[in-house]
Measured scan of single mutants.
Amino acid sequence: MTEYKLVVVGAGGVGKSALTIQLIQNHFVDEYDPTIEDSYRKQVVIDGETCLLDILDTAGQEEYSAMRDQYMRTGEGFLCVFAINNTKSFEDIHHYREQIKRVKDSEDVPMVLVGNKCDLPSRTVDTKQAQDLARSYGIPFIETSAKTRQGVDDAFYTLVREIRKHKEKMSKDGKKKKKKSKTKCVIM
């Protein structure tokens, strides 16, 4: 069974824990209790493949930012979460993405942009803004509501699919490099 290491990042209060708990335990946590770091595991079937999701729910508070490099190193894919009623959390996505790329030393890291709290009427981040940002990053965008469960499975499952595509691409690139290195030079 394939294991996928997913990391949920975003500013404090955007609903990272609520999304994760909704996926794992099928219930909505409405009281806000700032996370330092929590880890969850769940076995699911995605596109006919049974897999184990190892999900790291991270601290959004700035005082825990020193811990970010460590979990970013171990993560295979990242859910970059903002709240649709919090423009600052949307603007912060850029910083999370840049930090992930720096730590992973790669421009090509599996990510999904997630606009959470889409059940709320007080939207300050337009869907088109988020779609445009995701398009500019070359990553999928999904709106979710941890409260109603809308888009929750889709967000995590899409990230797994992005990781699969990335692994497939990397193995193809690896095979191309191996083929090239088999060419021999004969000096007579």
Rank of each mutant, 00 (worst) to 15 (best):
L52K: 12
K169H: 08
R68L: 05
S122K: 07
K175L: 13
Q25R: 10
G115E: 02
I100N: 05
F28C: 11
K172P: 13
G77T: 00
I93A: 02
Q129N: 11
D54P: 06
G138D: 11
K182G: 13
D119Y: 01
H166M: 12
C185I: 01
T183R: 09
L52F: 11
T50F: 03
I84L: 15
K175D: 15
R41L: 06
V7C: 12
K101F: 11
D153T: 14
H95D: 08
M170R: 04
M72V: 07
D153N: 13
K88V: 03
V186E: 15
T35Q: 07
L79R: 00
L6G: 00
K177S: 12
K177L: 15
G48Y: 03
D38W: 03
Q25E: 07
I163D: 03
D30C: 08
V45H: 09
Y32C: 11
Y137K: 06
Q70M: 03
K169N: 11
K128Q: 14
S106Y: 10
N86Q: 03
I21K: 15
E3V: 08
Y40C: 13
N86G: 11
F90K: 05
L113K: 00
G60D: 13
Y71A: 11
A134I: 02
A59R: 13
D57V: 15
V125G: 12
C118V: 08
V81S: 02
D153G: 11
A11P: 09
C185V: 02
A59W: 04
N86Y: 03
Q99K: 09
K180C: 09
Q43P: 09
K5C: 01
K117P: 00
S65G: 13
L23H: 14
R97M: 15
Y40T: 13
E63F: 02
G115N: 03
A11H: 03
S122E: 14
C185Q: 15
V103A: 11
C80N: 01
V114N: 00
C80Q: 01
T127W: 13
K88I: 04
S39Q: 05
M72A: 09
V8F: 02
V125D: 11
E107P: 05
D154I: 08
C51Y: 10
Q129H: 13
R41G: 10
P140T: 11
T74P: 05
D108P: 05
R68P: 13
I187T: 15
I46D: 05
S106D: 08
T20I: 05
A83H: 04
D69K: 06
V81T: 05
M111R: 00
E76D: 15
D54L: 02
E37D: 11
D119H: 01
R68N: 15
I93G: 01
H95K: 15
E3Q: 06
Q22C: 02
I55W: 07
P121K: 09
D108H: 10
K104I: 05
K176V: 01
S136H: 06
I187P: 15
